[in-house]
């Protein structure tokens, strides 16, 4: 009982406060962006799981009223003193209020992002043209050179006429490969989940750092896919002429905060990435971390809850 509780709290603290700073330490040459993305997502998922498990455990631990749900089944209320029950009830009230407040601030945000995206897509449908050669591309009449992607069943990539003029055929191919990688790897969904986690638990170091680091890593992962198919030289040329963003997900606020430095970092990495190859052992360790980051809090939480349901 006490061990499962300690394990749960330890995993919540380790994942929520330490995992992010540690992941942030890895230099970009040491770990491939795709692997880093997996680690970050696992750390985020683990943090959210551990956090919710801690809340559930706190709610159903005796002699709180939440435990009454379990006790109802087992009928063991008289063991606890009146004062203890009152204190636990107050604690429960505070905890439930805090959780409701956090959810109330996070969920409407998600709804807004989805509505915003839908409106954007409706407008596109009225204004954009189909691309002659690429079936999955829409063309928007605007001189600013931009390419982006939107999660959609068909025609998820949008290219402005300015981008078409600025890019050669080969460069456009590389840009499209980059955007297709975003869509194939479900990066929009990851960004949306990241935003939700950030609005629920904004003060945890892991979540805060994921918010500033993950968007750039997603771009790098898509860069890798495009560079593999078209060569990094062509991709760098294309990136320098326009910006490729994973579309208005409503998830990346304007305060994303890495500014023009992000593009410089991506280009530098593409130009030097041939030299340093990430080691295989690093990849295996990363996968092991990702797997344990999700399973440890799940297991500890489940065991703690089952233990509590046996206690009177």
């Amino acid at each position: 009982m006490i061990f499962s509780l300690l394990a749960l709290i330890a995993s919540a603290v380790l994942l929520g406060c330490l995992a992010g700073p540690v992941l942030d330490r890895f230099r970009r040459s040491a770990i491939a962006p795709g692997t880093a993305v997996v680690c970050w997502v696992a750390a985020l998922a683990g943090t959210v799981i551990a956090g919710s498990a801690v809340v559930v455990v706190a709610l159903i631990s005796p002699p709180g009223p939440g435990h009454g749900l379990l006790e109802w089944l087992r009928d063991c209320l008289p063991h606890h003193g009146n004062l203890a029950i009152t204190m636990a009830a107050i604690a429960t009230l505070v905890l439930v209020t805090a959780c409701c407040l956090r959810l109330a601030s996070g969920l409407p945000r998600l709804g807004r992002a989805v509505r915003h995206r839908r409106r954007h897509r409706e407008m596109l449908r009225l204004v954009a043209r189909e691309h002659g050669r690429h079936a999955d591309v829409l063309v928007l009449d605007h001189p600013v050179p931009v390419a982006y992607s939107l999660p959609a069943r068909q025609r998820g990539i949008v290219v402005s006429t300015g981008a078409q003029e600025a890019l050669t055929d080969a460069e456009l191919g590389a840009v499209l490969a980059h955007e297709r990688a975003h869509l194939r790897l479900r990066h929009h969904a990851l960004l949306l989940m990241l935003d939700l986690a950030h609005s629920l638990l904004p003060w945890l170091p892991t979540v805060r750092r994921a918010k500033s680091r993950l968007p750039l890593l997603l771009e790098m992962a898509a860069d890798d896919a495009a560079a593999n198919a078209h060569g990094s030289r062509i991709l760098v040329d294309a990136l320098c002429r326009l910006s490729t963003a994973p579309g208005p997900a409503g998830a990346l606020g304007a305060g994303g905060g890495h500014g023009a430095g992000a593009l410089v970092e991506r280009v530098l990495r593409l130009e030097t990435s041939g030299a340093v190859k990430p080691r295989r052992s690093v990849r295996i360790a990363a996968c092991a971390f990702a797997a344990s980051a999700v399973t440890a809090p799940l297991l500890a939480g489940a065991v703690a809850i089952v233990d509590l349901s046996r206690v009177c």
Binding site: H116, H120, M123, L124, L126, V127, L140, D141, H142, P143, V144, P145, V146, Y148, V158, S160, G162, P215, L216, R241, L242, S243, A245, G247, P248, A249, G250, L252, G253, A254, G256, G257, H258, G259, A260, A262, L263
Partner: peptide, 27 residues
């Protein structure tokens, strides 16, 4: 006008892009 929608879509994208200042500068 049709152009106004194109501009609004573009602004949507640019405000979400982390480096929209750089895009505008290059433009």
């Amino acid at each position: 006008a049709r152009e106004e929608y194109a501009v609004e879509l573009m602004l949507d994208v640019l405000t979400d892009a982390p480096d929209h200042g750089a895009i505008l500068a290059r433009f």
